[in-house]
């Protein structure tokens, strides 16, 4: 076992800022949806809009970072070991079986994570951002272009929000399934995680 740096400073900043913004967006968003009362409707609207802008800016930085560092490869789904990973969560984890796919610096995400995160990055985030900003800038049937009201935009945005909430809940639980219960959490805070030694590529 060796302590390896797997999350760079930007990745950690990105992650925790995203967490904070998504949490804020979730609370304010569902207040706007009239699911519960939190800050008051008007405050929630203003917070939600500002957080949406912050999220957009963060996303632009993240895309820039991915392109520059090539880390986008981490999020590309792979065919191998998808089934094994699923079997691990359903069976292996109860038998103290080893993780089927080794976590390495070059491949931090397991095959299931890759699929889920890829889905978030390619589908859910863009849909939330696009519908969110349509919500902000498109208001009435003919401004700036003809659309039959907010309904389609709003319903799509709500759908994305539910998916994100479900993801966050599952994510909070699944981070406890690392080497130890807190190793994943520690890694995302400190950047370092104890990984099994790997063959050093030369």
């Amino acid at each position: 076992m060796e302590k390896v740096k797997i999350y760079s400073r930007f990745e950690r900043f990105w992650h925790w800022t995203q967490m904070a913004l998504i949490l804020l967006l979730m609370i304010t968003g569902f207040e706007i949806h009239s699911t519960f009362e939190a800050f008051g409707f008007e405050t929630s609207v203003r917070l939600h809009s500002a957080a949406g802008w912050a999220f957009l800016i963060l996303t632009i930085f993240a895309i820039f970072w991915m392109l520059v560092t090539g880390q986008s490869k981490q999020f590309v789904p792979v065919r191998n070991n998808v089934k094994q990973q699923a079997m691990y969560y359903m069976v292996g984890i109860f038998k103290k079986a080893p993780h089927p796919v080794k976590k390495t610096v070059d491949s931090k995400l397991n095959p299931l994570q890759r699929i889920i995160y890829f889905g978030l990055i390619i589908l859910v985030f863009p849909v939330q951002l696009i519908t969110g900003f349509l919500y902000l800038f498109f208001h009435y049937p003919d401004k700036p272009f003809a659309l039959e009201g907010l309904e389609a935009v709003a319903v799509l945005h709500t759908l994305g929000a539910f998916l994100l909430v479900a993801f966050v809940i599952a994510h909070l639980y699944l981070i406890t399934t690392g080497h130890t219960v807190t190793s994943n959490l520690q890694a995302m805070i400190t950047g370092y995680e104890e990984l099994e030694e790997e063959e050093k590529e030369v």
Partner: peptide
Amino acid sequence: AILVSLLLPIAVLFITVKVA
């Protein structure tokens, strides 16, 4: 670690709340 995982995200959140 404290900076990137705690302080900077809080700063972003703070700015967001200020803007709002």
